[in-house]
């Protein structure tokens, strides 16, 4: 799928960026999404639903993420959609439900939502067989605030699953570091060296940093890294070989893009472990 002059380039926070190389001979980043689905044997199941979302909401209006469970190497995916209908009772959930209706029920029974900025949904290889996605994630942020709260919502439950601070890693280092070091999952005071295992030096040179606190781990998202840094991520976290081969084969054609690499981490017996890592692009 070639890149074109009509492409819009978004980071995971839905901020537009200028491509960092001319578009000649380049391809769209969503090729990585389709290849990840192909690798996991999920392309047939998700090709039509995802294209239905693209048709309904528009091209380059949504964010996709692919995640690798580092224990099992199994893949999982996330979609994020900007709520561009804040006046509607359910916001972007309505058109999203309509787009997915032939294949999936989305948050069945959920009929009222407060204001939110972004709607997220997650799926894995088992999702399509169930015919439904019970929960959605609502990203809520105060206007002008650098923090976002993410709630997982079903028709009967609403739980806080992530609190995130979004800052520039270098310019706002005095805010970023305390946020990272205030952790229930890593004792940075006892082992200052561990900061280098989460603030990964090869990814530190990014445009935005999302510092997230979750119920079972902490997370960082290095937003605005280039394809070279993405390839580093693949190697650093031993992504499945076919995925690395695909990225390597297409690396030059993806150089115009910036990606958002996310790592989940916690300390186990004095070492930082990474339950899940992944990255985002727009489609």
């Amino acid at each position: 799928m070639p890149a074109s002059n009509r492409d819009r380039h978004l980071n995971v926070g839905f901020e537009a960026y200028r491509p960092v190389r001319p578009l000649a001979d380049k391809v769209r980043g969503e090729n990585l999404l389709w290849h990840s689905l192909l690798h996991a044997g999920q392309l047939d199941a998700w090709d039509d639903p995802l294209h239905a979302i693209q048709r309904r909401l528009g091209v380059d209006r949504s964010i996709w993420g692919v995640f690798v469970d580092l224990q099992t190497s199994e893949l999982a995916w996330e979609l994020r959609l900007l709520n561009d209908q804040p006046g509607a009772p359910l916001g972007v959930l309505d058109p999203l439900r309509a787009a997915l209706r032939p294949w999936l029920e989305l948050a069945p029974g959920l009929d009222a939502l407060g204001p939110y900025a972004v709607l997220g949904l997650r799926f894995d290889p088992s999702t399509m067989a169930t015919g439904r996605i019970e929960a959605i994630e609502l990203h809520e942020r105060e206007p002008g605030s650098p923090t976002t709260s993410v709630y997982r919502v079903t028709s009967t439950t609403r739980e806080l699953v992530s609190s995130e601070l979004l800052r520039e890693p270098k310019r706002h280092i005095n805010e970023v570091l305390p946020a990272i070091k205030t952790s229930e999952f890593v004792n940075f005071t006892a082992q200052p060296r561990l900061l280098g295992r989460v603030m990964i030096p090869e990814l530190f040179a990014c445009r935005r940093l999302h510092v997230a606190k979750r119920p079972t781990c902490d997370s960082l998202c290095f937003s605005g890294v280039n394809v070279e840094q993405l390839a580093f991520t693949y190697k650093r976290f031993d992504y499945p070989a076919p995925m690395l081969e695909f990225l390597t084969a297409n690396q030059a054609a993806l150089e115009h893009l910036l990606f958002d690499v996310a790592i989940e981490y916690r300390e186990v017996e004095g070492r930082v472990t990474y339950p899940k890592t992944g990255y985002y692009g727009s489609f």
């Binding site: 570091l177 200052p192 060296r193 561990l194 900061l195 280098g196 295992r197 603030m199 030096p201």
Partner: peptide
């Protein structure tokens, strides 16, 4: 950094 950390202190 990967060996000895960021040496913040």
């Amino acid at each position: 950094v990967n060996t000895h950390g960021w040496e913040l202190e």
